[in-house]
């Protein structure tokens, strides 16, 4: 066992072209070139001896198709972002003011759910477009517009709630004492 190891080490040293062997007291020897065993090319080997290669399924890597897909997604996203909530909230508002007379609560509920779903779908499509094509400028612009609008909306909601609470607090016991004119729908 030990002697084998020793032999192997010696052989390796002799075959390795990058290890300089120094003979003390003798002339420097040129490194021995590695001996490559004669081997047949793969295509000349018989079939059963050829190594098996796993070929992954071909993936469609077409940047032009990807950018087209990303642009399409961005357009759909923009439509969903702008049009759908506007339509649904108009329906909700009309229904809330008693235009349809029947199923008003259900119409308001369903349209608010649909408009929020459309808003979320717009975000999802924008993110899919960003992930599909990293360099798509349309998707980048959409993302920053959406983020800016979101920050504005959050700040607006916070200010609105603070303003409502302040307005209601100024009323005290009865609505006739209010400092601030409340929105007409707040008094019914």
């Amino acid at each position: 066992m030990d002697s084998n190891q020793f032999n192997n080490e010696n052989q390796n040293q002799a075959q390795n072209p990058y290890v300089q062997t120094v003979n003390v007291g003798g002339e420097p020897q040129a490194p021995v070139p590695p001996q490559v065993p004669p081997q047949q090319p793969v295509y000349q080997q018989p079939m059963y001896q050829q190594p098996m290669y796993y070929q992954p399924a071909p993936v469609a890597e077409d940047p032009a198709a990807k950018s087209r897909l990303a642009k399409k997604l961005c357009v759909i996203s923009l439509i969903l972002y702008g049009a759908a909530p506007a339509v649904f909230s108009t329906i909700a508002w009309m229904s809330d003011s008693g235009l349809f007379n029947y199923f008003d609560d259900a119409i308001v509920g369903v349209s608010s759910l649909l408009s929020s779903a459309a808003y979320i779908a717009a975000w999802v499509l924008m993110i899919i477009a960003r992930v599909t094509d990293k360099k798509c400028v349309f998707a980048k612009v959409l993302m920053w517009v959406y983020i800016g609008m979101l920050i504005l909306a959050v700040v607006t909601v916070i200010i609105l709630i603070i303003a409502c609470v302040e307005a209601m607090r100024s009323c005290g016991d009865s609505l006739s004492n209010c400092d601030i004119l409340l929105l007409p729908w707040a008094i019914r």
Binding site: D96, D104, D105, G109, V110, L113, S116, W185, A186
Partner: peptide, 12 residues
């Protein structure tokens, strides 16, 4: 924000 409206069917 929208779940309250969806459940109750009232914008207020």
């Amino acid at each position: 924000l929208s779940m309250g409206i969806t459940v109750s069917g009232d914008i207020r």
